[in-house]
Simulated assay, not measured.
Amino acid sequence: LPEDILQEYGGHPTADGMVEGALRHIHILEKMDYRNMVISLKSSQVPLMIEAYEKLAEKVPYAFHLGVTEAGLARVGTIKSAIGIGTLLYKGIGDTIRVSLTDDPAEEIKVGQDILSALGLRQFGPVLISCPTCGRTQVHLIELAKEVEAALTGITVPLKIAVMGCVVNGPGEAREADFGIAGGNGKGIIFSHGQVLRTVPEDKLVDALLEEINKSISS
């Protein structure tokens, strides 16, 4: 921000100061009759970033580029980006996004896709839903979910796939899933939209799930 605006708002960035700074540059372009612009008000502080975008969105009709800049390493950066970018997109604010992580840039793309997918704005292949572990779990649920996630790589059809820890609640809680598996004691079930398709040994669950998915895709 320009020094005069920083001083006006106490020497540190505020939402009102960010908006004032953005408007100063926007007005320069408008005086030149140039309106083909995309505006970014990134901040490493999530609440500040959200507030600034919301306030400026009330004042100008231009496109917005969203991002939590310098968000940090993968875990914290993903959380901060999901909250900041996701909150604004949910409110209808934002046209392009950038996830900033101190990690492999390819991970930034994956997180961005996941944010859009979670909001139902875009879908990039299957969406995996899975339950947490609990006392009813009789299968190696965490490993199973990771195996399914890896097996779904390369599938581009927008499906909802469920990995559930038990057959008691699995098919019912995940009845909206196109396909899913629910573990048991040494075996599990393959289901689709809450209906059980077949029972298979635990070590065959992923292969059987993929068989049903591929059968549906090719039909």
Rank of each mutant, 00 (worst) to 15 (best):
D33G: 08
N36E: 15
N36V: 06
N36G: 10
M37V: 15
M37Y: 10
M37H: 11
V38D: 09
I39A: 08
I39C: 07
I39T: 06
S40Q: 07
S40G: 14
L41H: 12
L41C: 09
L41K: 12
K42R: 12
K42F: 11
K42T: 13
S43V: 03
S43H: 13
S44L: 08
S44R: 02
S44Y: 05
V46N: 08
V46T: 14
P47W: 03
P47E: 08
L48M: 12
I50H: 04
E51F: 06
A52K: 14
Y53R: 08
E54K: 15
E54P: 09
E54G: 10
K55V: 07
L56K: 07
A57R: 15
V60Q: 12
P61L: 02
F64E: 09
F64W: 13
H65P: 04
H65R: 07
G67S: 11
T69I: 09
A71C: 08
L73K: 13
A74C: 04
A74K: 13
V76W: 06
V76H: 10
I79D: 00
I79T: 04
K80T: 03
S81T: 09
G84F: 02
G84H: 03
G86I: 02
G86F: 04
G86R: 06
G86K: 06
T87Y: 05
L88H: 01
L89P: 06
G92T: 01
G94E: 10
G94S: 06
G94T: 08
I97P: 03
I97E: 01
R98I: 07
R98H: 03
R98P: 01
V99P: 02
V99C: 01
S100P: 05
L101G: 03
T102K: 06
D103V: 01
D103T: 11
D104H: 12
A106W: 06
A106V: 07
E107H: 14
E107K: 14
K110V: 09
K110I: 09
V111D: 00
V111Y: 02
G112K: 00
G112P: 00
I115G: 00
S117P: 00
